[in-house]
Simulated scan of single mutants.
Amino acid sequence: MLGWALILGFVSGSLPFSVWLGQMFLSKDIRQIGDGNPGATNVFRAGSWKVGVVSLLLDYFKGVFPAIISYWGWNIRDERLILVMMAPLLGHQFSPFLGFRGGKGVATTFGVWTGVTLWEGPVVLGFLLAIFYCLLDHDAWSVIFGMIGLLLYWLVKGATGEIYGAALANLFFLLWTHRMALNGKIGVKFRKKDPNIS
C-alpha cells in the first residue's frame, strides 16, 4: 500500500493548477511573472484575485487528499508516514508536467498537515506564520521560522516520531525551495513601523 500512497501523493502534488489556470483564464504564463514561481502567488500578481484564490485552494487540496487517504483510509501511521507526507511536496517541486520544476510548496505543506492532523498542524503553522510575517521583513524567513516553530510545537507536545520526522523533513524541503530567496540574506530585519501610524 505504501507504493500506491507514494504514487498518489506525487501525482497529486505534481498537478500545476496555478500554471494551468493562469493559461486558461488569464492567458498568461505565471512563470514569467514576479519571482517565476509556478504557484498561486504569481496568479495573484497576474492580476486576478479570484483565479488566485482558486489556485491557492487547489494547491492546498492536492496535499490534503493523498494525506487523508493514506493516513485515515490506508492507516499508514508509522515511519512510512514521513515519505507519504513528503510525496505531494516532492511532486509539487519536481512536477513532470513542468519539466521536473515546481513551486515552493507552502500551500501544499498546509494541505498535508491538514490531511494528517486535521486542524492542529495548519492552525499552529498559520498562527506562527502570521506572527513572523508581521515581525520580519523577509517573507522567506517567515516561512522558515514558522516551520521551525511547528517542529518545536510537536517536540514540546511529545508527538510521535513519524510526526516529528515529517516536520523535520518538511523544514528541509522548505529550506530547499526557498534557497534562492534566502541566499545572501542570513540576517533578518524586523518590519519598520509605518511613520503614518501613531
Rank of each mutant, 00 (worst) to 15 (best):
S198T: 09
G115L: 14
A46R: 07
G36N: 01
G22A: 10
L58S: 06
G3V: 12
V54E: 00
L8N: 02
S27C: 02
V156K: 04
A5I: 06
N196L: 15
T160R: 10
K185H: 13
D139A: 15
R191G: 08
T41C: 02
E162Q: 14
P122W: 15
L129K: 05
W141E: 13
D29P: 00
L171F: 13
D29A: 13
V112C: 09
F44E: 02
G184W: 10
K192Y: 07
P195T: 14
F61V: 15
Y60W: 15
L98T: 03
G34P: 00
T109H: 10
A46L: 10
I30Y: 05
D59R: 09
G102D: 04
K189H: 08
L89E: 01
K62R: 12
I163Y: 08
G184P: 01
P96G: 07
M24Q: 07
W20D: 02
D59Y: 11
A130P: 00
Q23E: 12
K157F: 09
R77A: 05
A130C: 09
L118I: 15
V112S: 10
S27M: 07
P122Q: 12
I33E: 04
V123I: 14
D78P: 00
I33V: 09
G126R: 09
K157Q: 06
G146L: 10
T117E: 07
R101V: 01
W176A: 11
L168K: 03
G158Q: 05
G34C: 07
L182P: 00
T160N: 04
K62V: 12
K104T: 11
T41Y: 03
N75V: 09
Q23T: 04
V11R: 04
Q23K: 14
G187R: 15
G73M: 08
F17Y: 10
R45F: 07
A140E: 01
R101P: 00
L56K: 06
S48R: 04
G13L: 02
V43Y: 06
G146Q: 07
L150R: 05
L135F: 10
W154Y: 13
A67S: 15
M147I: 12
L150H: 02
W20E: 01
V123P: 00
D29S: 08
D29Y: 06
D35W: 03
I186M: 14
D194M: 14
G36E: 02
I76W: 01
A169W: 05
D35M: 10
A140P: 00
G99I: 10
F127M: 12
T108A: 15
L155W: 03
G161D: 04
M180W: 01
V51F: 04
K192L: 15
G126V: 11
M180D: 00
L15G: 03
D78T: 06
L182Y: 05
N42L: 12
